[in-house]
Write a protein that binds this DNA or RNA. Sequence first.
DNA 1: ATTAACGTTTGA
DNA 2: TCAAACGTTAAT
Length: 338
Amino acid sequence: MANMSSSVCMETPHAHGHAHGHTHNYNPTPGRDFPLQIDSCMNPVLDYSAQMERYRSFATFYKNSTAAGATPFPQTAKIARIATPLFPSARLSAMPPWPCDNAMLWGRKPATVNVNGPHTHRTGMSRAEPVNVHMSAKHIPQDSALSMGDNFLSPLSAEQCRGLPVTGAECMNRLKCPPSGPPGEADRGGTFGGMPPLGGLSLPPGVIVMTTLHSGAGSSGVTMSDSAFQIANVAADCQHSGSSCSGSPAALNGNANGSCSSGNSNGSGAAKRKRKRCGVCAPCRRLINCGVCSSCRNRKTGHQICKFRKCEELKKKPGSTMERAPSAGAADTFRWFF
DNA sequence: ATTAACGTTTGA
DNA sequence: TCAAACGTTAAT
């Protein structure tokens, strides 16, 4: 995988929506793989395309602006720009696109499991993979930079999402499990992605769902049971992660290695082992590198993952999550339940 | 506090 | 063996 930092590193399955023959590396094959999602509140194809367009135009714009000899954009400006949430309400969260981000998740190769963190039991998940799908510059529409304003905002507005006749859980339900996908694979990313911001709050989808379950909102005439089971499955799945680790979230990150690391995990502080990405947070679920952040640009020397893919858990210092004991609030508890 | 770079671990 | 990426540290 050569030089991911210098190229835009993106691939898209026909964001432009025309029908022709050539194929891309990543192609969810909309008609075949996601037949039920066409009319869902989070049309995955549209969503994926929107995301890809967004990234593409972003990278192209800055690339062109830099190449033209113009005053380069400050890195902070780039970051701020690309981090612009898809939904206005998402500005409340640190990681912008909680909702509508999952389109990129489908078909992704399994993310690395967090054996320390939120107990993922994703034995199938490989290490963090090179999500940079290479997209040569020639594939980038020349006008993309000019349409930045449009592309940076998802075509799916918050209003659009809210107005749809399904709840977030329902969306999730529909978005889950591409029929042709391997069993278990779809649960990883697809299950959590499609939650619209409820009540104007941008929360991790899992939080919303589990809170809803507890509040009994499932009786509101919305099909919740399926989603509930999906969540439960994921949770149970997570519980088994890390082989011998205990299930306590507090124990997970209490020390960087989890409390069950083979070596010396107890207090000695020595021989720290690498933590792994949780695989469930928004950054972890991102499929593509932005291509413009410092980590992407300095991939050769920096050895760091794209800033927008950096696991939220790994951003925290090991041990900074001790407060997340089971006694935490419901939302937090459920978040860590995963 | 943030960033860049390096050493290192990890898994394919 | 290699690529990816985490942890650490020095520079700013």
